[in-house]
Design a protein around this nucleic acid. Structure first.
Length: 829
RNA sequence: GCGGCGGUGGUGGAACGGUAGACACGACGGACUCAAAAUCCGUUGUCCGCAAGGACGUGAGGGUUCGAAUCCCUCUCGCCGCACCA
């Protein structure tokens, strides 16, 4: 026995130094004419971290998954791009600055240094020559350049509208950043404010964002969330005319077949015409009071579906285009200005909300769709009628009697011929509000000139540097507004006085294109060279948390589609495949949080057990897409496994000569079993890694191989050397240091330079197997049988086995099902 | 309400429609040790039985099948996203 022991603190830095000094994981861009002859590319990417404090356990899992994928692809013959960077702008650094006085730049740089130390200690196989950070002028210069290209195309615009305002963070937020009426960052309740802000026209891409989900390999849940968020519904836009004022009001409806059932008309309190309509009527004062109350109410309260319906008459009517009926107009807060046209037709018989409103205001309820076969007289006059499959129109003038689906089309066609409507599609998706009234972000490259108005900063003047300030406190406007010297400048068009835009960009803008920059990270003439990008795009495997299902993952898709339209790249989707890893919960099964005191930091874990054990553990803990609770004792189990593997390598290295560890010739007995187990493990681990992300079962298979090595200690050393080197080779993607160490101890070679091992099919089958003998589907016996035996022989073996005989006894054998090399099922009655 | 995912031992979890519970943790027993730790070996779904063996078992109920954790239907519970979206 050796008195040496497995010491990750000695092994791990040694291998990290090799990789660092030899720049093992760097991969250069190829000249275009060499790409075709090069090995196939694979772009493996984990979502970039937001550097705040030190990395947490979720980062460890994210990068352990990505690194395993990257290693596996390298060793299966791919040219792998695996870069990393930092999403460095953002609120936490700025809020920290307000609290502690430490400038955001300093805190961010310190945190980046801590992340860099951790990532190196974890032994990640990153191409550090491509490292980027979004707060560096060399990066955000191009964020501004992209903004200007979007601005030129009308995809970035400034508009006043009702926007979400977080009174705590003193800034506006995108729709996507409001969760249950609260600020995603700080949890404070969000208010609606009428403000002029910058938007990206993501809605122009709604259809493509929806349809192209079919072309990418993403988890169904993420695709479903995006579909939901985009919320496409098709129907019709129908025009209702207010004769008294001579104004047409279009409404959107998904149910044009119910047009004859409209008995009233409702507008949102924010609708710009509401006061104009009520002016001069007896309801004017009531309407004003109602609108004021509705506008001041908190969004969360107003949005509650269970809330009783309220509203006020406007004292006007509109004309229903299908039958000329005058419909009374109302203002009511259940109608949303942001969706459709801010006005709806009220069809109480076929819409629950309209039904509740009609009931509250004693308005008529007229059914116009009924199940086929029902007589008009059967249909209740006042009940809300749920939608069913087979329906036809009633009470619908010349459309009466038509099937509801055909009737819908007929009504739309008729409206269209009369100029009173058309087929239309509506979306839930809103444009992306990108401006923030905060300091620590990318400045928006726009100037306001007294004579020229809004002027984009010329490309040659980029970057617009973020100025240093002393006071980061937000006061409803960006702290940049106080940077006088920076603020006042000259108009590039007329040379007159101009003022800079003081809002900064949402950090999601920075992270919507970073994955493109890695491909050409040191280019200072353009954000990237389209030819260089073409050799890497799209990302073959993207890995990150599910919390980005709609924010980052939708914005990045939008950017890439816009870039494709500008001819800047040639793919339609950034992430061909996506893997969303589950969270690591605290030992108590709850989400880790400082307030719960259940946070496990990776740093002491790595110091105590080594990076290999920590990485293996987070992969072994369960299926990587699921949440799992941290368990120290399970971590010790994984550490034990690596220790056992290392000890095998150490012992063999002491007793045998270093050299190639190949499958021995004609092994027998224990040696044969060991060699078979090794090939079985190769086969299993390969299948688990090849697109399956089944790291937990892959590691389990290597554990089985190691266990087999301990059980068959007396096998000859050639077989043991082969099996141990194979275990080291297979464990390398998960535990690169000990994998490299054991492989080198035995063979003298570098495991990452070796091709991924191939299982010999001949070694995957034994000459005999255990035949499972069932009677009526229940196992009654197991007998040895020769592999590849004909069905008749297996049937005979099974029927003559004692267990089957005992259970068939006295019953008639009706049928025998034979599954070759596996089982026989005797059906007896 | 709409959409998505899930329910398997004491625990985390395995299982192309073909031996349910791989692997790991924990527990129990043994070896080594003066002892402990570490390490190594073994047992470990539940129930009946001394044993051989048997019965029961994947949220509930039904169905398809020679055979169902797996496929289909109904229900139930849980998690996630959206939600007065016309």
């Amino acid at each position: 026995m050796s008195d040496r022991r497995y010491d990750p603190s000695e092994i791990e830095p040694r291998w990290q130094a090799v990789w660092e000094s030899e720049r093992t994981w760097e991969v250069p861009n190829l000249p275009p004419d060499e790409v075709a002859a090069a090995p196939p590319k694979s772009y493996v990417l984990e979502m970039l971290p937001y550097p705040s404090g030190e990395p947490h356990i979720g980062h460890l899992k994210n990068y352990a998954v990505g690194d395993a994928v990257a290693h596996f692809r390298r060793r299966t013959g791919h040219r792998v791009l695996h870069p990393l960077g930092y999403d460095a702008f953002g609120l936490p650094a700025e809020n920290n600055a307000i609290k502690t006085g430490i400038p955001p730049r300093q805190a961010t740089d310190e945190s980046i240094a801590a992340f860099q130390r951790a990532f190196r200690a974890w032994g990640l196989s990153i191409d550090w020559s491509r490292e980027i950070s979004s707060h560096e002028p060399g990066y955000y210069r191009w964020t501004q350049w992209i903004f200007l290209r979007l601005f030129e195309r009308g995809l970035a615009y400034r508009k006043e509208s009702a926007v979400n305002w977080c009174p705590n963070d003193q800034t506006v937020l995108a729709n996507e950043q409001v969760i249950d009426g609260r600020c995603e960052r700080c949890g404070h309740e969000v208010e609606l404010r009428q403000l002029e802000q910058w938007f990206f026209r993501i809605t122009a891409y709604a259809d493509r964002l929806l349809d192209d989900l079919e072309t990418i390999r993403w988890p169904e849940s993420v695709k479903a969330q995006q579909r939901n968020w985009i919320g496409r519904s098709s129907g019709a836009e129908v025009t209702f005319r207010c004769e008294a004022l001579g104004i047409d009001y279009p409404v959107f409806t998904t149910r044009p077949d119910t047009l004859f059932g409209a008995t009233f008309f409702v507008m949102a309190p924010e609708h710009p015409d509401v006061m104009r309509l009520a002016a001069g009527t007896e309801h004017e004062a009531d309407v004003r009071a109602y609108v004021n109350r509705a506008l001041s109410e908190r969004a969360a309260d107003r949005g509650a579906a269970e809330k009783p319906k309220t509203g006020v008459p406007l004292g006007r009517t509109v004309t229903n285009p299908v039958n000329g009926e005058p419909l009374p107009m109302y203002v009511a807060d259940y109608v949303l200005m942001e969706y459709g046209t801010g006005a709806v037709m009220g069809v109480p018989a076929h819409d629950e909300r309209d039904h509740a409103f009609a009931t509250a205001f004693a308005l008529p309820i007229r059914p116009v769709v009924a199940p086929s076969g029902a007589e008009a007289s059967d249909v209740s006059e006042r009940a809300f009628t749920a939608h069913t499959d087979d329906e036809r129109l009633i009470n619908s003038g010349r459309f009466t009697g038509m099937d509801a689906v055909a009737g819908r089309e007929a009504i739309v066609d008729w409206l269209e011929s009369r100029g009173a409507g058309r087929a239309a599609v509506s979306y839930r998706l809103r444009d992306w509000l990108l401006s923030r009234q905060r300091y620590w972000g990318c400045p928006i490259p726009i100037l306001y000139c007294e004579s020229c108005g809004m002027v984009p900063v010329p490309d040659g003047d980029l970057p617009v540097l973020l100025p240093e300030v002393d006071d980061y406190q937000p006061r409803g406007r960006s702290p940049l507004a106080a940077a006088d010297e920076w603020l006042h400048t000259r108009c590039p068009r007329c040379g007159g006085a101009a003022r800079r835009e003081t809002d900064t960009m949402d950090t999601f803008v920075d992270s919507s294109w970073y994955f493109l920059r890695y491909c050409d990270a040191r280019n200072d003439a353009a954000p990237w060279d389209p030819e260089v990008l073409a050799q890497w795009a799209p990302i073959d495997q993207y890995i990150g948390g599910i919390e980005h299902a709609i924010l980052h993952l939708l914005y990045a898709r939008f950017f890439v589609k816009a870039f494709a339209d500008m001819g800047l790249l040639s793919v339609q989707e950034p992430f061909a495949a996506l893997f969303t890893q589950g969270m690591i919960l605290g030992p108590d099964g709850h989400k880790m949080s400082k307030s719960r005191g259940n946070v496990i930091s990776p740093t002491p874990i790595v110091e105590r057990f080594g990076a290999d054990a920590a990485r293996c553990y987070v992969l072994f803990i369960g299926p990587p897409d699921q949440d799992a609770a941290w368990s120290e004792t399970s971590l010790e189990g994984v550490h034990r496994f690596l220790t056992r593997l290392w000890r095998l390598g150490d012992e063999l290295a002491q007793t045998t000569a270093r050299g190639p560890a190949e499958t021995p010739e004609n092994p027998t007995g224990d040696a044969l079993e060991l060699v078979r187990k090794a090939h079985w493990a190769i086969d299993k681990v390969t299948a688990d890694l090849d697109g399956r992300f089944s790291f937990n079962t892959a590691i389990a298979a290597i554990m089985e191989l190691v266990n087999e090595l301990y059980r068959r200690r007396d096998a000859d050393s050639g077989a043991r050397r082969f099996a141990t080197a194979t275990a080291a080779s297979l464990v390398f993607p998960f535990a690169p240091h000990v994998g490299a160490e054991v492989y080198e101890l035995l063979t003298g070679d570098r495991v990452w330079e070796e091709p991924w091992p191939a299982a010999d099919p001949a070694m995957l089958v034994a000459e005999s197997f255990e035949l499972v003998c069932q009677v009526n589907g229940r196992v009654r016996d197991r007998v040895p049988a020769p592999t590849g035996a004909p069905r008749e022989e297996l049937e005979r073996l099974a029927l003559s086995s004692a267990g089957v005989q005992a259970h068939v006894n006295g019953h008639e054998v009706v049928k025998v099902v034979v599954v070759p090399d596996k089982l026989v099922n005797v059906v007896a009655r």
